[in-house]
């Protein structure tokens, strides 16, 4: 049996290690924010989560388009893997966001456009995953999921803009979260995003490969049944 490539596992490992190194940047290098103090450190884990979640959803969109154009089953499996990681990361981003809001402003939830958009996206893609868990004929399921994947991503900017208008009607209670980061903070945030990106890439790769293997086994099994 050909052994599996160790690259994705290495990616996950190196991502975790570099992120661990980033902890030094977060707590020693970056200055403590004046008004929020230590609480602002949550930002450095919140931001990469949100960023890579959004990027995962973008990958679902790309994969869906390419599935509709080329009908490659691999693109469909990429969508499945990306949607799963996206829901996981955006869920964690929501949790860190609420924890941050609780400590910084004393409420669990603020109707900040970004936070609202993340919540709606989490709902949309969680629904998408439910759709994926069903058992219609496989090819039809892939087509339906691809269409939903496209519609879902097209919806994201609309949700964001409407959440923004929604808030401007209710007077904004809280000032902008992170207006004007200092250069050290920016560098730290960048380091966190990049190192978390390694982890994310490894995770996505692992899941995609696992789904590939599962499909191959399914094909083998159905071929054996037909004999």
């Amino acid at each position: 049996m050909r052994s599996l490539s160790i690259v994705p596992a290495m990616l996950v490992l190196s991502g975790s290690l570099t992120f661990a190194c980033c902890q030094w940047l977060i707590y020693s290098y970056a200055p403590t924010e004046a008004t929020m103090g230590l609480t602002q450190k949550i930002f450095y884990i919140h931001l990469p989560l949100a960023w890579w979640a959004l990027f995962s959803f973008f990958l679902v969109f790309v994969g869906s388009v390419s599935y509709l154009l080329k009908r490659a089953p691999g693109a469909d499996r990429l969508c499945a893997a990306a949607a799963e990681t996206g829901v996981l990361l955006s869920g964690l981003a929501l949790v860190t966001g609420t924890l941050w809001a609780r400590k910084a402003w004393g409420v669990w939830w603020t109707w900040d456009p970004r936070l609202t958009t993340t919540l709606i996206m989490w709902f949309i893609y969680a629904g998408y995953l439910v759709l994926r868990g069903l058992n219609p004929p496989p090819q039809r399921k892939s087509l339906v999921c691809a269409v939903v994947g496209i519609a879902a991503f097209l919806d994201v900017p609309l949700v964001f803009v409407s959440a923004r208008i929604w808030r401007s009607i209710h007077p904004a209670v809280f000032a902008a979260k992170d207006g004007g980061l200092e250069p050290e903070m920016k560098l730290t945030a960048l380091g966190c995003v990049v190192s978390f990106g390694l982890f994310w890439a490894g995770l996505l790769w692992l899941r995609k490969r696992q789904l590939d293997l599962r499909d191959r086994l399914d094909t083998l099994a159905s071929a054996a049944q037909q004999q």
């Binding site: 709606i120 709902f123 949309i124 969680a126 629904g127 998408y128 439910v130 949700v159 409407s162 929604w166």
Partner: peptide, 16 residues
Amino acid sequence: LLSIVLFPLLTPLLLA
């Protein structure tokens, strides 16, 4: 099934 897929997608319209 249709509700859970459709409702969040309709959010902008509902807000409007």
